[in-house]
Simulated scan of single mutants.
Amino acid sequence: METADKIRELRERTGMTRKDFAMHIGIPLRTVEDWEAGRRRPPEYIPRLISYQLRYEELMKKMEEETNAGKE
């Protein structure tokens, strides 16, 4: 999978717009747009790092939901 496709797939999985996604991961909007369009290529570790961040956030959300469900 091309880097541009991987970045787009990660963003689309979140359901975020490019602007929201860029703000969420702390990358300038123009950079995210350029990555997705294939005009620029991020370092190899960036898609992996974003993926780890999103998975971590999913895990933390799930743990929080389980904790809150246990309190009821």
Rank of each mutant, 00 (worst) to 15 (best):
R41D: 07
P43T: 07
R8T: 14
E64Q: 10
E66Q: 02
G38W: 06
G38K: 03
W35L: 07
E36Y: 00
L29K: 09
I50N: 03
E65Y: 01
I46F: 02
P47H: 03
K6N: 14
R30L: 14
P42Q: 08
G70I: 01
P28S: 08
E72Y: 01
R18W: 00
T31S: 13
R13N: 11
D34I: 00
A4C: 10
R55S: 11
S51T: 00
M1A: 12
I46H: 04
Y45L: 13
K62F: 12
M23D: 15
T67K: 02
L10T: 03
F21M: 02
P47K: 04
R11S: 03
R11M: 00
T14L: 02
A4L: 08
R18K: 13
A69F: 02
D34N: 13
R18V: 06
G15F: 08
R8E: 10
G38I: 13
G70V: 01
V32I: 13
P47L: 06
P47S: 02
E36N: 09
R13K: 09
A4Y: 10
L49Y: 00
H24A: 05
R55K: 15
M1Q: 13
T67P: 00
R41T: 11
R41G: 00
M1W: 09
T3N: 01
I25N: 08
R30H: 11
K62Y: 12
W35M: 11
K6Q: 12
E12R: 09
L59M: 15
M60T: 02
K71P: 05
R39G: 02
T31V: 15
I7Y: 04
K62G: 06
L29S: 01
E9G: 12
D20N: 03
E12M: 05
F21P: 03
A22L: 12
L10M: 00
H24N: 03
R8N: 14
R40Q: 15
K61N: 13
R18M: 14
D5F: 14
G15P: 00
L49F: 09
I50S: 11
A4M: 07
K71E: 12
I7F: 01
L49V: 03
T3V: 05
E64H: 06
Y45C: 07
E58F: 07
E36C: 08
T14E: 04
E66P: 04
V32M: 05
V32S: 01
H24M: 05
Y52R: 13
E65Q: 08
P28M: 07
R8M: 14
G26A: 07
L10I: 14
L29R: 01
I25C: 06
E2G: 11
I46P: 06
L29P: 10
I50C: 08
M23P: 03
M23S: 15
D34H: 14
D34T: 06
R39C: 02
G70F: 03
A4Q: 09
A69G: 04
T14S: 06
Y45I: 04
F21R: 04
E9N: 14
K62M: 13
P42C: 11
E44V: 08
A4D: 09
P28N: 09
T31L: 05
I50K: 02
T67V: 04
N68T: 07
R30W: 11
E58T: 07
E58N: 09
R39Q: 06
K71L: 00
D5E: 15
S51G: 12
L10R: 02
L59D: 10
Y45Q: 08
T31N: 14
